[in-house]
């Protein structure tokens, strides 16, 4: 009986962790799926989003949930700047991204990753910090759920649903989906490709930084300049699991990873759990390279 309780509890925690993982990976997914650029500096913008939650809590008393929209607004601006600084010259007037441009953007975002994390060490010091946010717990039968984690999980799902609705139901959203399929044809229906691609990039950054804020609920003393080195690979795994460009893929990949990690943690150590979680990438790449979702 005790074992069953343990498994149910871990499953619940795994699902909630999976939700926040999903949103953290979702920004990478959007940029990868639409603009076809893999942002190596993705983890650093999660880190900046997390510090956003830390500083807004420190100076303004905001909870991570309240920081998320602020981070998202900053992320939009950062995303536009990122597009015009790193991607615009590589993407404009091209039908599809060339191998050379892929290499250039990989190298450039790798450089950006090093620059941002080192700048963060100088500005924030290497000492980890955290946000204290505890709105209580909720009892479900014998499972005790911290409300903070539950709120974050709900907000995470809402964010993913929101981006999906935006892409499905708005004119500019359908242009983003069109751009993901055929850049030239998108221009031939009268859409400015740079405008579409920069908006997709900006949205990706907004989601990424908001995800960083929400993540802080799970890492009470874990905000540090190098945290991107863990959450970037987690995001890559999630996007590959779900399939780049599939909006619900982030959720499928995130939940899968969250549950696997949490269940493994119950029986082994956290280090082994994270290492083993990355191993599921191998069968997925071999048997379902297009991702778990159809």
């Amino acid at each position: 009986m005790v074992a069953a309780e343990l498994i149910v509890t871990d499953l619940a925690f795994g699902l909630m962790l999976g939700c926040v993982f999903s949103v953290v990976a979702h920004g990478l997914n959007m940029i990868w799926g639409v603009v076809k650029v893999v942002n190596i500096a993705h983890g650093e913008f999660i880190m900046l989003g997390a510090y956003g939650a830390y500083f807004l809590n420190l100076f303004a008393g905001l909870t991570p949930l309240e920081t998320a929209p602020v981070d998202a607004a900053i992320g939009l601006l950062v995303g536009y700047a990122f597009y015009y600084a790193f991607l615009h010259r590589e993407l404009r007037n091209k039908e599809t991204i060339t191998l050379q441009s892929e290499m250039v953007t990989l190298a450039a975002t790798f450089g950006l990753s090093l620059f941002v994390s080192n700048l963060a060490i100088i500005l924030f010091t290497g000492n980890p910090v955290g946000v204290n946010y505890n709105p209580g717990t909720l009892q479900f039968g014998y499972v005790r759920v911290p409300l903070a984690a539950l709120y974050v999980a709900i907000l995470s799902v809402l964010i993913i649903m929101g981006t999906w609705l935006f892409l499905e139901r708005t004119f500019i959203g359908s242009a983003i989906r069109a751009y993901a399929q055929d850049v030239t044809a998108t221009e031939l229906v009268g859409a400015n490709p740079a405008k579409v691609a920069s908006l997709a990039t900006a949205l990706g950054f907004a989601v990424t930084m908001a995800g960083g804020a929400l993540l802080t609920v799970w890492i009470p003393v874990g905000i540090n300049p190098l945290m991107g080195a863990l959450y970037a690979p987690i995001s890559f795994v999630i996007v590959v699991l779900g399939g780049p460009g599939k909006m619900w893929g982030s959720l499928v990949g995130g939940l899968t990873l969250g549950v696997v990690i949490d269940l493994l943690q119950a029986f082994t150590t956290a280090q082994i759990a994270y290492a083993a979680a990355f191993l599921i990438l191998i069968p997925v790449l071999v048997f379902r390279p297009e991702g778990l979702l159809k």
Partner: peptide
Amino acid sequence: CPEGRRLFPQLSTEANLLLGAYS
């Protein structure tokens, strides 16, 4: 109407048409 038609294969017929009315 470009060579090879260049439609958006993962979108519906109507979504393809409506994208034409983008401007």
